[in-house]
């Protein structure tokens, strides 16, 4: 077991290396002088020189990469050009709202999507199934921000049930937290619910065609147990996989959702950094988000061994 965890952890290293390389090259391989691009249109020669020195752009490429990697390994993601604060400090300040929002979204989505998907698979071809599938494709197609604004329009401006925007920490103001987090969670969750519902339906449907389901029925097992004890348990691995892969969608969605609802999280940090061309911040955040994503998927892979006894890497 532990050998497997180690092995799986080791296998993420080359992927992380590629990610780091891509993020590194993104800046260096673009046409023109990245320092000029970063500094923006109204920069003075002095500012450009300062940026060039800060980023070490005057050194050979491989030296730049190795220095940069060395810094990352020490937990140093560089310094913001705009605020002069370390990127890690900035991330620390903005971490909580994003973590809380993604957590509520995942919980909400899984609780809604898995039962919905199982139901659709069980009633495959019937009207419940069709309705669920229509919802799912609509969920896929509604851009996060459009959905966000529609919800604000209805529930905040029209019905005045919930605030239009903002964020309250659950640790200081729980009621305020609930009021502010509801719409962002639904907004961000829509596409995730659509994704997980689809895969749950498809996996359960596929499993329901397996021979061992027929065996269970041949034993005289009732439909509910066939569905949950035999089918869902076998469908768990692909569902978990998609929940993991979907985190990428969630991260992208969080950036937008935080903008729509004015939540001071990492997503807003990204958007602010884009507007200010604060490249070290963009670079650091992409790296952090990607590594988190890789780690989450690694943990899900490890969880497979619990879900499916056949999987022993």
């Amino acid at each position: 077991m532990w050998f497997f965890v180690l092995k799986r952890a080791a296998s993420t290293l080359p992927v992380m290396l590629v990610v780091a390389l891509v993020v590194f090259l993104m800046l260096r391989l673009t046409p023109g002088d990245p320092a000029v691009v970063i500094a923006g249109d109204q920069a003075t020669a002095e500012q450009i020189a300062r940026i060039r020195a800060t980023l070490g752009l005057d050194l050979p490429l491989h030296v730049q990469f190795l220095t940069w990697m060395g810094q990352i390994l020490k937990g140093d993601l560089g310094v913001s050009i705009f605020s002069n604060l370390p990127v890690t400090t900035l991330i620390g300040q903005r971490l909580e709202p994003t973590l809380v929002l993604t957590a509520t979204t995942i919980v909400f989505s899984v609780l809604v999507a898995v039962p919905l998907g199982v139901l659709a698979a069980w009633k495959a071809g019937g009207w419940v199934d069709r309705l669920v599938m229509v919802f799912s494709v609509v969920g896929f197609s509604f851009p996060v921000f459009v959905l966000g604004y529609l919800l604000i329009y209805k529930f905040s401006l029209d019905l005045k049930w919930l605030p239009t925007q903002g964020y309250r920490s659950p640790f200081t103001d729980f009621q305020g937290f609930l009021r502010t987090i509801t719409l962002p969670t639904i907004t961000l969750g829509a596409i995730y619910v659509a994704l997980v519902t689809r895969i749950t339906r498809a996996s359960v449907l596929e499993v329901l065609g397996e021979d061992y389901i027929r065996t269970a029925r041949a034993k005289g097992q009732n439909e509910r147990k066939v569905l949950f004890r035999h089918a869902l348990k076998n469908a768990a691995v692909p569902i978990a996989t998609v929940i993991g892969i979907g985190v990428a969608l969630l991260i992208g969605g969080a950036v937008v959702t935080e903008t729509v609802f004015n939540i001071p999280g990492l997503g807003r940090l990204v958007v602010d950094a884009i507007l200010r061309r604060d490249y070290p911040v963009i670079q650091g955040l992409i790296l952090v988000f990607s590594f988190t994503y890789i780690l989450i998927n690694m943990l899900i892979d490890v969880a497979y061994t619990v879900l499916d006894p056949r999987i022993r890497y």
Binding site: D211, Y212, R214, T215, D308
Partner: peptide, 10 residues
């Protein structure tokens, strides 16, 4: 098919 007639996760 004894390979597929038993539930693999039980």
């Amino acid at each position: 098919e004894p390979m597929t007639a038993l539930n693999p996760v039980l």
